[in-house]
């Protein structure tokens, strides 16, 4: 009975028009299932049996990716309720906490997935290091990885400002203050003032769009956090996965 329903579905014109291959219960269709899908084709059709060994990758890269996906979904959901305006941002978050259905769930998921992503990206890097997977010919993918790592951290940090509470405000104030100590281009950095950098034109001013964390900083961090950095991460992830395929996976032989 179930078999019959399944056959009805996979033989139907609609199914065929979408997937262009039969149900993957034979090797040909298993191959098609991978390489004719835009989502699955990042995989090879076949992998070495040993590459599946959990005790090699511990799935750390995959978990990082999955957390990034969770963050994108919950983040977009949160964007529906959030206004990057200093007079409203905090109240929006309070509404998420106490009024909006599922608000707490989504906010908590977003927050802890973010912590998780930072943690797992470090663990993944450590795995890659300990298995020597950064050595030739994979040096460049390691660099791509470091870019992803930095982006992950900056993403977390820019997101930290958005709730506009004391935690957010002061963490970002301290961080931005660091920028003002940048040598050569910061108002407080070595040779900064000598080169003419003041509170109103140095690197910290550029970062915050002002001399203190205010409305301009909020909108900057919002755009960076919700648009620019996720896009950058996505592009670099595409390169990252492409290179894993091109350079070959390092797994045990």
């Amino acid at each position: 009975m179930l078999q019959k329903i399944k056959n009805e579905i996979v033989e139907s014109q609609i199914f065929k028009s979408v997937f262009r291959h039969g149900y993957p219960d034979n090797d040909l269709d298993r191959a098609y299932a991978i390489f004719s899908s835009v989502f699955l084709h990042v995989h090879p059709v076949k992998v070495r049996r040993s590459a599946l060994r959990m005790r090699y990758t511990f799935c750390l890269g995959g978990i990082t990716l999955f957390l990034f996906i969770v963050l994108s979904v919950t983040g977009i959901w949160l964007m529906f309720y959030y206004t990057p305006y200093t007079g409203l941002a905090y109240r929006n978050i309070k509404d998420l906490q106490f009024v909006i259905f599922g608000g707490n769930l989504m906010r908590d998921l977003h927050r802890f997935a973010a912590h998780g992503m930072v943690l797992f990206v470090w663990l993944h890097m450590t795995r890659v290091f300990l298995t020597g997977a950064y050595k030739a010919p994979r040096e460049f993918n390691w660099i791509v990885g470091v870019v992803l790592l930095v982006n992950t951290l900056v993403l977390s940090w820019t997101g930290y400002l958005l709730p506009w509470d004391q935690l957010a405000y002061w963490a970002v104030t301290v961080g931005a203050k660091m920028a003002s100590y940048t040598p050569l281009i910061g108002q407080n950095g070595p040779w900064g003032p000598q080169l003419g950098f003041l509170p109103t034109n140095d690197i910290m001013f550029m970062l915050l769009g002002g001399t203190v964390v205010g409305q301009n900083a909020l909108i900057r961090f919002y755009v960076l956090h919700c648009v620019v950095l996720p896009l950058v991460v996505t592009v670099f992830l595409a390169v990252h996965f492409w290179r894993i395929r091109k350079d070959g996976f390092s797994g045990p032989l």
Binding site: K94, N104, A113, V118, W164, L167
Partner: peptide
């Protein structure tokens, strides 16, 4: 994640206030 958020919630302190500096002032853990 689902289990974790049963025990721990995303924090929200009082509204940002440039005139009161928390002590100690901690960056995010990472």
């Amino acid at each position: 994640l689902m289990v974790l958020i049963q025990f721990e919630h995303a924090p929200l302190r009082s509204l940002a206030d440039p005139s009161t500096t928390p002590n100690p002032m901690r960056a995010p853990w990472y």
